[in-house]
Write a protein that binds this DNA or RNA. Sequence first.
DNA 1: TTATAAAATGTAAGTGCTTACATGTTCTGC
DNA 2: GCAGAACATGTAAGCACTTACATTTTATAA
Lengths: 332, 332
Amino acid sequence: MNIYQVAELAGVSIATVSRVMNGSDKVSEKTRSRVLQVIDEVGFTPNVFAQGLGLNTMHTIGILVPNISDIYMSSAVAYLQDSLAKYGYDLLLGNSGFEQEKKEQQTALLLSKHVDALIYVGSTYAGSGKDERETDYIRRAAEQVPVFVINGGVDGDNIYSSVCEDEAAVYNAAKVLIKKGCSKIWFLTDSRSYSAIKKRTGYERAIEEAGLNPVQLHVDNRIHKVRDYLLQHDDLNFDAVIAGSDAIAIGVMKYAVQKGLCVPEDIAVIGYNNSELALACEPELTSIDNHTEQICRDTVERMIKVFEAGGAENNIKRKLTVPCELVERGSS
Amino acid sequence: MNIYQVAELAGVSIATVSRVMNGSDKVSEKTRSRVLQVIDEVGFTPNVFAQGLGLNTMHTIGILVPNISDIYMSSAVAYLQDSLAKYGYDLLLGNSGFEQEKKEQQTALLLSKHVDALIYVGSTYAGSGKDERETDYIRRAAEQVPVFVINGGVDGDNIYSSVCEDEAAVYNAAKVLIKKGCSKIWFLTDSRSYSAIKKRTGYERAIEEAGLNPVQLHVDNRIHKVRDYLLQHDDLNFDAVIAGSDAIAIGVMKYAVQKGLCVPEDIAVIGYNNSELALACEPELTSIDNHTEQICRDTVERMIKVFEAGGAENNIKRKLTVPCELVERGSS
DNA sequence: TTATAAAATGTAAGTGCTTACATGTTCTGC
DNA sequence: GCAGAACATGTAAGCACTTACATTTTATAA
């Protein structure tokens, strides 16, 4: 069933059918209803490829995440999907991993499918001047479609980013620990993403302001890996840990259990993302909530605005900042 | 840049360029390399919409999950994405929720984008004869493209399903608990999915064989919701719980903590899916691993075979069964 | 060489839409 | 009753490919 057959049945030209489908106002009420009835009767759906050929869009948004199975990323995808569905957009999903090459490749793949926009969740970025070329592929993509970055440190023309205030969040978290009397507060993270760097900065600032000694450890993001890593080192000497994720934080708690240490008495622990994991352990985990849902919804809202504005010239905010919130529970 | 310009530059017709791109063997080596060189030089990518119009495919697979943010679903998506990427397929993602209407709607949306196949992860199904019409929309979809169902109970022409042996798994888990001396083993689940029904059947069989009394509770799938639900009831009387998910199981453990009961001494707990959550709690959770990764990879392998066979007539297995495994930890 | 088969390449007809522009129809005011 | 405006509809040219079929080129054998 194609537009020609519908036109035939309705006794009009294909242009008229097309106009009816696209809600053009230049159709008489009589004709419109007749066409709609035929469309309904025969169950006609326009061919997206033909539409795409003409319009160069398929109402699809490309999304690239490093790891969908990560609880934080997957909930971001869920929120994005949900919001976009309301506007009739579908999601084309790329799971990029953390390798540069794969990211570029997946980006090309999504672009080749003529997505209307690209969303990067937590794109890595080595930060100030370190190796900005790493994200060049994103800027190149932005020449073709608007790019939205969630918790990533990329900017440029046609790039819109939404970040949470990781630095302030960790700074405050460290302050809280200091106030509680902790003096050997370590920072554990698994990635060198833009977020991780901001977290680290906040951590260092708080620690140094208090005249303490900052210690950072780079670990895996899986509970048992963290525990085992810590168990293998006997030079550990912390009374508090701020972790880059809830899984890492729980890894620390597992270490404490093995060592016969008590949380929070001997070691205070603060996680990140406030995911379901934070509720699974005992005591429950104090965690920094970075308001993923809000960030995702804001991103979609802005995207729609960008579409409506059409083109890269607009006065829509390039960078949106969302505060984080320390959700205190038993672990600190 | 389009095929005409490439043809022009290479001094051949567009048909030849097309042949080169599609790896047709009817091109001389000389011509092929010349064309490839031009394609490479100018960075030509064929327009997927134009290709789609001719071929009626865009090398895209539609996937429908009830809830991507669920740790089990998201890891399934990750595995599927990973496997499919190897064959050059992209994933068009629908987050259907659990409502019938939304599922049908999302299915239609994906079909309208001419996906090459549909994957349903954990599609609900009320089971033997109860209301088979609920899944009619899946059978209708299967008239258009091959449909792959993971842990769902749908079958029909052009539908390929992969299920894990939930029934046997729960049966065995219950047996283990019985052997350990538990006599008041309850079963808690959150959904009436096909899997849930199989689990229940296994549970009932084991309990009844042992001459015990089966008790089932229908709960939410979130840790605190489960805990609160249990706390509100004071007629609880179990010494073991088999849960339909790890989150539910941990909810039970949270309840135990509140009540001052010990796990596993007072209450033995077994979860499902063997997710990261199972490692987060203390004691760690005994959980049934349903080998999601293997199921996903098998599904993709079969899909490729179906594509190669072309058409619904083939002797590729319609139903694949994967055993589950009880991973025993401290909670039981 | 030349007839003939085989291989390589080109031509042109789809594929199903959108939309600028052309044409036809209805309404308005005099 | 009619010019001219306003509105409705149709015509046809893209959009960028694939591929059956036609044609040309090259190889093969007598």
